[in-house]
Simulated assay, not measured.
Amino acid sequence: MAGTRRRNRRHWPDYLLARPRQGGLYYYWKHPNTKKEYGLGYDFAEAASQAREANSTLAAEKKPAERLTNRIKGNDNESMTAWLGIFEENLKRRTGKNGQNRSENTIRSDKSRIKFLREGFGPEKLIRHITPKDCSDVLRPLLDAGKIRMAQAIHRTLVDAFNDAISNGWLELGKNPAQILDAPQPVVKRARLKLDQFIRILNKARSSAEPWMETALMLAILTSQRVGDISSMMFLDIRMHESKEYLHVIQDKEGHPIRIPTELGLPQFPNTTIATVVEAAKNRGIASAKNICHHLVSVGYAKRGDAVHEQTISKNFTSLIRETFAEEERSQIWPGKTHPTFHEIRSLSKSLYKAIGVDTMTLLGHKSASAAAIYDEKRGEWWTVELPSKQ
C-alpha cells in the first residue's frame, strides 16, 4: 500500500503534502524556504491547483540565473545603481526648454530623484532584472505618505531613465518596466489665496518679520513671478529701455526673458509700484547688496547683504500663515485643504492684473496653444509687458 501511495504521488505538485485525519487525507503546501505549512483542505483537485499556483509564484519571484553570454559581455555588472550614475551625467548634458541651459533648480531636483532611486533599488539589483512590481514598490512609500506629486516626478524620472538605458544598449527595446505603470495622479488640495488674506499676511510681515519678507511679498504681487525669480532679482536688473525703466527677469524655470515696467502697480495698493518697492528695499538695506531681497543681518551661513534663498522665503511665508491665522480659522477658511503657499501669490496677482487689462500671459511667461506661434517668433528676445491703458 505504501509503495502504491508513493507511486501515486509521483506526479503531485512540488511541496504538496498529505496527512490522514478523521475526515480523510488532509492536504498541505509546505514553503520550501520558510518550511511553513499551509492547510488546503480535503479536496485533492483544489489543493493541487493551489499548490501549482503557489509554485508558479515562487518561480516568478526567483532571481534568474546569469546566462554565460551575459557574463562574457560583462552584463552581469550592469546594476541599476551603475546605470543611474551614467544617466545623471547624461542629464547634465541635456538642454532645457527652448535650447536654454537647464536651471540649477532642475539639476538639483534631478540629483535628488536619482538619489531616491539609488536607495530604492539598492546597490546590487541588475537593471535587466527590474520588474514593474519593483518599480511599484519603490513608489509605494511615497504614495502611502500622500506625497503624490513627488511620486509623479519619480515615476517620470524612472520612465526617462529606462528609455535612456534602452538607447544606450543597457536594455532591450520595449523592456521599460516603468512604462506600463499608471502615472500617479495628484489631487489638488492646496487652497487658493484671496486678496484680503494676502493683505493680512502682508501686515503681519510688516510688524513681525524681517524687512526683506515685505519686499518679497510686494515683488510677488506686483511682478507675478515665481519665488525663485524673486530671490534672484538684483538691483542691476532695473535698466532703461527706449527711455523707460524696466525690471528685467530671465525666468529660472522656463528661461523666458521678460521686461516689466517699473511703473507697474495694482489699484489695490495705491501709490505703490515695482519702482517704489525696489527703492524702499535699497534705502533700508545694505549698500553693497546686489539682490533686492537680501539679509540685513548674518543668519547661519548667510551673511549681511547675501541674497535670501527661495526656500527661506517660502518657509517664512508658511510661518506667517500660521501666525496670521489660528489653526481653527485655517480649518474654516480652507476646509479640507492645506494652506496656500507662496506660489499662490502668483495666481492671485494674475487675477488682479487680468481685471485691469494687463497681458498676464506675457507677464507670467505662460504658454498656450494659441500663443505658441508668437512665442516661437520671439525666441531669444525680451517679452515686454505693457502698462494697462488706465494706468
Rank of each mutant, 00 (worst) to 15 (best):
K194E: 15
D137I: 06
M150N: 11
P177V: 01
M150W: 06
R190G: 12
R200D: 09
S224K: 05
V187D: 14
R206I: 05
V138N: 05
K147S: 08
R226V: 02
N168W: 02
A209I: 02
D144R: 15
S208F: 01
I201E: 05
N168A: 08
A191N: 06
R190K: 14
G169H: 07
R140V: 02
L158T: 02
W212K: 10
L143D: 03
M218P: 05
A151E: 04
I166E: 05
R140P: 03
L139F: 03
N176C: 02
Q197L: 02
V159M: 05
P141R: 13
T131D: 04
L173P: 06
A151L: 06
A151H: 06
R226Y: 09
M213L: 14
R156I: 10
K175G: 00
V188F: 10
G169Y: 04
R140K: 15
L193K: 13
W212A: 08
L193G: 13
V138G: 06
A178D: 00
A165V: 03
Q152D: 13
R192F: 11
E172A: 14
P132H: 07
D196L: 06
I154T: 15
W212V: 09
N176G: 03
L202M: 05
L217K: 12
V227S: 14
K133R: 14
T215R: 01
I201W: 08
Q185L: 12
K147W: 03
V188T: 15
E172I: 01
L195F: 07
T157A: 11
A191E: 03
E210N: 12
D196Y: 07
L219K: 13
R192H: 15
A216Q: 08
E210G: 03
S207W: 00
L193E: 09
L143A: 11
L219W: 04
Q185M: 10
C135R: 03
R149F: 08
K133T: 11
K133I: 08
V138Y: 04
A205W: 00
V159P: 01
K147V: 05
T131W: 02
Q197M: 07
K194G: 12
F198V: 08
I201P: 07
L195H: 13
S136G: 11
L143W: 02
K189N: 12
W212L: 08
R190S: 10
I166S: 07
C135P: 01
K189T: 15
A178G: 01
D164V: 00
Q152A: 15
C135F: 10
D229P: 11
R140S: 13
K204C: 11
G146H: 08
L217D: 05
E172L: 09
D182H: 10
F162D: 00
N176Q: 04
I221R: 15
L139E: 01
L158Q: 04
F162G: 00
L193R: 14
P211Y: 02
L181E: 00
N168M: 09
D229F: 04
L143I: 11
G169E: 07
G169I: 01
L217R: 11
M213A: 11
A165E: 02
T157V: 13
M213Q: 09
A153M: 13
K204T: 09
L195P: 08
L171G: 03
Q225C: 14
L142T: 05
T131N: 04
K147A: 11
D164Q: 05
A183T: 13
V138R: 10
L195S: 09
A209V: 01
L222C: 10
S207H: 01
L217Q: 09
A151T: 04
R192K: 14
